[in-house]
């Protein structure tokens, strides 16, 4: 009887396998933040974002660019540094249950990566199409670019690299060697950001109008394909989780 009570107490104290609060809070964080950003675009895009030589453009858009760049560098350094600093140096000796718990945390990171990719690659990128096909740009730092290139892309890069670092430093599955498709699925979409250099060079010196299917944009396409490497990550995860469960689930 006493032993049973102890066991129940131990179970009650044990951290849950999946921290649902973190999962929901993380998901909501992106949603609320990007809803605010979309509201900001709606209000200050038309009223202060059409003439880059106007003082209000500096106030509402360039200042936003400076702030987001600083915050992103601080966030990336902080999160990546913390993940590396607190890495598990005895990762091969954790219990199967702890390993399963970490897989859940890892998948919380991956859910955030998927969510961030949606906002960056789908929502804000196609939004850029309608903005630049409608207005005439007079700068590389348009309201649309300040959000798309310099906010939503860095956010999915920070999230993706964090996910990779979590897996590498805390899961036995990834502790030895580097998972090729994981690297591709994080570094490929990351390369979309440096490709902005080609995009701006082309729009500045060659083609001011917006044609979305222009060859100038094919670099974004090529690196976007790398998102498919998530399939290799899912395959590895399914095998690892299946091994941990060791149950017939049919």
């Amino acid at each position: 009887m006493a032993a049973t009570t102890e066991s129940v107490k131990a179970d009650a104290k044990e951290a849950p396998l999946l921290n649902k609060t973190n999962l929901i809070a993380g998901w909501m964080l992106y949603l609320v933040f990007y809803s605010f950003i979309r509201w900001y675009e709606g209000v200050y895009g038309w009223s202060a974002g059409l003439d880059s030589f106007a003082p209000e453009f500096e106030t509402y858009w360039m200042n936003m660019l400076y702030i987001e760049l600083v915050v992103e560098v601080v966030l990336a350094s902080g999160i990546w540094g913390w993940l590396w600093k607190t890495r598990d140096r005895k990762v091969m000796s954790i219990t199967p249950r702890e390993e399963l718990r970490r897989h859940f945390t890892h998948w919380t990171w991956l859910v955030m990566y998927g969510w961030a990719i949606y906002w960056g690659a789908s929502y804000f990128t196609e939004q850029d199409g309608t903005w630049h096909q409608t207005i005439v740009r007079d700068t590389d730092f348009t309201p649309s670019h300040i959000i798309e290139f310099y906010l939503s892309y860095p956010i999915y890069i920070i999230t993706g690299v964090s996910s990779f670092l979590y897996a590498k430093t805390r899961l036995p599955t990834y502790s030895e060697g580097l998972h090729l498709m994981y690297l591709v699925s994080v570094i490929g979409p990351f390369m979309i950001l440096p490709n902005v250099g080609l995009n701006e060079w082309g729009h500045t010196f060659w083609f001011m109008e917006e044609l979305f299917v222009a060859p100038l944009h094919y670099g974004f396409v090529f690196f976007g394909w790398a998102a498919l490497a998530i399939m290799g990550v899912v395959n590895t995860e399914c095998a690892a989780i299946g091994k941990l469960l060791k149950k017939d689930l049919a």
Binding site: W107, S122, I192, G224, L228, V234
Partner: peptide, 22 residues
């Protein structure tokens, strides 16, 4: 969790590909 991630990552990759090629 896998379905959500696969869905959103494929959405992002496929959408950026499709919008910039067609």
């Amino acid at each position: 969790m896998i379905l959500f991630t696969l869905f959103t990552v494929v959405l992002g990759g496929y959408h950026i590909h499709y919008m910039l090629t067609g």
